[in-house]
């Protein structure tokens, strides 16, 4: 990221009012920093406490490794290891859809940017429109459709709709149309490459950054998707971890008093489940701030 330093220290002429203004702004920003940070810090600390300590102790006092281990054990013993299979399901759905997304989107974005064919413009406009529709808007219609063909409950009922990722196609399209010159492809054709070879040997190696970008967005979105699997997968065995969290929540007496019993989940255990449910995305996010900006601003930076 380019940091532009506009400057010499301004404000010598601002005097007292400038100084107090700055203090006020500083305080406001500090409040927002706390607002964004406190929940995350607290959540991480909560996983290291016992249920009792969580309620009576200072919220920001760390617990112990022993309590973390106990919470870990309670979480993974829940319904005979359901959490393990939920995480496995999440990985299957997110990665499966990611692979299909890449296989479908990269060539499509390439073809729309650098080749001519009938319906190219139609496909492009369609892509733009569906890209801006929130992905939850089509979930119930897709459910009704897949219900007709009997796919409900099948992992494919989640993987296939998630693989449809018009935003990825749009990103690829922008990338190829702005950074890969057509002349390069024409030269390869003159050298006798087939169309497929032009794509695989010339265009694809140049596209590594955009493949990574599409993979990032697709993975994050797939992993965090709640509504689609919630609707498509009626049985707990098939839940991804995001939906599994609702089962844990339903077994937490603090939020659902009727659930007290052998299988009940304590608050720190629920906190640990929350952390585990976002861990892969959190790790990806730590390294991908640049990606996020590049993706969201693609095509929009031309003034």
């Amino acid at each position: 990221m380019t940091t532009v330093d506009v400057g010499r220290p301004a404000g010598r002429q601002d005097g007292v009012s400038g100084w107090s203004m700055r203090t006020i702004i500083g305080v406001v920003v500090a409040i927002f920093v706390l607002f964004f940070v406190i929940p995350i810090v607290w959540l991480l600390l909560a996983t290291t406490k016992s249920a009792h300590a969580l309620i009576i102790e200072n919220p920001f006092q760390p617990g112990s490794i022993g309590d973390l281990a106990a919470n870990w054990k309670q979480l993974f013993d829940f319904q005979d290891g359901a959490v393990t299979s939920w995480v496995g399901n999440s990985a299957l759905y997110a990665v499966g859809a990611l692979i299909i997304t890449l296989v479908a989107s990269i060539p499509a974005g390439y073809a729309m940017a650098l080749t001519e064919f009938r319906f190219r413009r139609l496909l492009l406009v369609l892509t733009l429109i569906v890209m801006l529709i929130p992905n939850t808007a089509l979930v119930l219609p897709i459910f009704l459709e897949l219900n007709v063909v009997g796919l409900i409950g099948n992992p494919l009922s989640v993987i296939l709709p998630m693989s449809f990722f018009p935003f990825g196609v749009y990103l690829t399209y922008i990338y190829f149309s702005t950074s890969v010159p057509r002349d390069l492809l024409a030269a390869a054709r003159l050298d006798g490459c087939t169309e497929f070879q032009v794509f695989a040997r010339v265009a694809l190696p140049l596209a590594a950054p955009i493949v990574a970008l599409v993979a990032f967005f697709s993975f994050v979105q797939n992993w965090n998707n709640f509504f689609l699997p919630f609707v498509m997968l009626p049985s707990s065995d098939g839940y991804p971890v995001q939906v599994g969290l609702t089962s844990l929540l339903a077994s937490t007496p603090a939020f659902n008093p009727s659930s007290a019993g052998a299988q009940s989940v304590q608050l720190p255990t629920l906190a640990l489940a929350t952390v585990i449910s976002v861990l892969p995305v959190l790790i990806v996010f730590l390294f991908a701030q640049r990606f996020l900006v590049a993706g969201m601003t693609a095509g929009g930076t031309k003034e």
């Binding site: 964004f36 929940p39 995350i40 607290w42 959540l43 909560a46 994050v220 965090n224 998707n225 709640f226 995001q242 939906v243 969290l245 609702t246 929540l249 939020f255 608050l267 629920l270 906190a271 489940a273 929350t274 449910s277 976002v278 995305v281 959190l282 990806v284 996010f285 730590l286 996020l292």
Partner: peptide, 16 residues
């Protein structure tokens, strides 16, 4: 960073 917690995870966190 909080953007990493979307969907059910962020709701759960806010329940706490």
């Amino acid at each position: 960073l909080p953007g990493a917690l979307a969907g059910a995870s962020s709701v759960l966190l806010w329940l706490f």
